[in-house]
């Protein structure tokens, strides 16, 4: 049996691999508060959204969540559910954000909006399932601040990657002929 793969599939796999690598890298960095992470893998999602289309970005994002959790041994654990909830909600917001006027809103806007959606999704899961207690509200401002900060930085990086002449991420078909 042979599965036919298109150039698009290869591209998605390659970009997802990059996102997974960034996710792994980030898993090593200690965090003062569980959940406060830079989310550098989202730069790839944003890059794909702008360079290609929403479907590719969604594939890259979801593949990243599943593959990273398998690699880290967190598949179907609360961490995985949190990650998935954040990814799904931020994809939803990215889909809405795509329709904002391109003239005024760039990747920085989308990055910040997606980061807020990410923590909103995660905090909802935490509040409803993991820690069903009103005191979770105390964490909201910290997570929101982290989302704004890292969303801004990731957005700026994505912007730089997208609008510099020499792209760092090489996705041309030429390099896939190994």
């Amino acid at each position: 049996m042979f599965i036919q793969t298109s150039i698009e599939d290869h591209r998605i796999a390659k970009l997802a691999a990059l996102a997974i690598a960034l996710h792994m890298l980030e898993a090593v960095i200690p965090s003062p508060l569980p959940g406060v992470k830079p989310g550098i893998a989202n730069i790839v999602t944003l890059y794909v959204l702008y360079k290609y289309d929403f479907a590719s970005a969604a594939w890259v994002s979801i593949l990243r969540v599943f593959a990273s959790s398998l690699l880290l041994g967190q598949f179907l654990s609360p961490t995985f559910i949190l990650s998935l909830a954040g990814a799904l909600l931020s994809l939803g917001v990215l889909w809405l954000g795509m329709h904002l006027p391109k003239k005024h809103f760039g990747p920085v806007s989308l990055s910040i909006l997606a980061a807020f959606a990410h923590i909103a999704g995660q905090l909802m899961i935490v509040r409803l399932w993991l820690i069903p207690h009103a005191s979770v509200a105390y964490l909201v401002p910290i997570f929101a601040m982290a989302a704004l900060f890292f969303g801004l930085i990731n957005g700026i990086i994505a912007h730089k990657l997208l609008y510099n002449e020499t792209s760092i991420i090489d996705t041309s078909p030429r390099s896939q002929q190994h």
Binding site: F105, F116, L152
Partner: peptide, 23 residues
């Protein structure tokens, strides 16, 4: 950064400040 980006950043800052004050 475009105008809309600045608006999003400003809105974000306001949101964070309000959240801190409220919660």
């Amino acid at each position: 950064m475009r105008i809309g980006d600045w608006c999003v950043v400003t809105t974000g800052i306001v949101l964070v400040v309000v959240l801190f004050q409220q919660l």
